[in-house]
Nucleic acid binder design. Sequence first.
DNA 1: TGTACATCAGTGAACGCGCGTTCACTGATGTAC
DNA 2: TGTACATCAGTGAACGCGCGTTCACTGATGTAC
Lengths: 207, 207
Amino acid sequence: MMDVMQNVNKDRDMGHSQADKARNRERILDEAARQIRETGLEALSVGKLMQKVNLTHGGFYGHFASRSDLIAQALERALLAGKAQAQAVRDPNKPRTFSAIVRSYLSRTHRDSRSTGCAISALVSDVGRADAQSREVMERHIEDFISAVSTALGDDDKGRAITAVSAMVGAIAMSRVLTDQKRSDAVLRAVRENIAAMKSDDAHANI
Amino acid sequence: MMDVMQNVNKDRDMGHSQADKARNRERILDEAARQIRETGLEALSVGKLMQKVNLTHGGFYGHFASRSDLIAQALERALLAGKAQAQAVRDPNKPRTFSAIVRSYLSRTHRDSRSTGCAISALVSDVGRADAQSREVMERHIEDFISAVSTALGDDDKGRAITAVSAMVGAIAMSRVLTDQKRSDAVLRAVRENIAAMKSDDAHANI
DNA sequence: TGTACATCAGTGAACGCGCGTTCACTGATGTAC
DNA sequence: TGTACATCAGTGAACGCGCGTTCACTGATGTAC
């Protein structure tokens, strides 16, 4: 009986050591990064977030200065997690080819896992109207993504990479709007096929 | 003195006739359509919206059943207004060529006028996580946009139009995130140039 | 055309609610001896 | 290694605030005669 009570408390308290605090901070950030991708930057509620990680709302301010401080950090975390998620799928030994990037980015799996996928496509519109600080955070990741694609294409100029990234981000974002699964699938397929052609012709022909 | 007072009241009351009511409903909807494109679906506040059109919050429920009812209707309005705005710019006598569509969509002017521009690029991410009703509203307009582009391209298949639309929507949405104006301009330019090539080669080569 | 009355568009006070944030408290952790 | 105390991670009640929504009211509009 006493043991049961203590276990219940353990689950809730999560310990009070410094290591526990650091671990809790990570859990809060990870969960926030998931939630903003799932429901947007503004929908995040401090109380619900803390409940989700089995803590009470009051403790939040031992970890973050304010809700908007958390959101800024969660956005960075979401962008990193989305990238890591993409790279976890592939074989770490082989270099990432252009077609491998396009295939995994424009997959139905990616479309259907908003809360763990790329934060750019999950939050472009939102961040487009956010403050300069948030925009700069995403800006760095957009640049990185473009650079990675440009390298995979073997281009000096970034024009084609920019176009491919725009099409990929737009396609995933739109595919999540479409309620008709066939149409949604068709968007992913069309962009995948049209864009794949970019690499196959080595002469820099039309796109 | 009496005249002045009456004029002040006129500005606020806006009259009580049925025609006035219909006009007020339109003003509320138009302003809501602007606001959701500027600040997102969720940021809209009934009180602030009514203040903006010189009415008091209580009157709102004479026009709409609820805030979410208004939002659904404002989304449709925003999508229509964005389309109308695009068509107002061009010469109504000439047919819309593919390159004309691309040039105006991917213009700096369009990027810089979120509250009057295309609601798809302003709200893709938001609507992607909204309820089925809102998604269906935007879905119809995405399909229309794809059809218009496909016609301009003279294609039977919609694949290339889907790719062009994805790239345009993604490019405008991302260009609004970038704080570095040069980079933002470069995204618009790159996609404009790469996509323009789609039409010039009539043989259905690579994109 | 003019009057009397019913209708109804818009007003603004009031409501309950969930939110972000603060703070006195508790008890486990870490440290000084 | 063991004890005594300071620290501090997490708790939960309380706060002020803005929100969506309701409603009794006002006075202009529209209609019946």
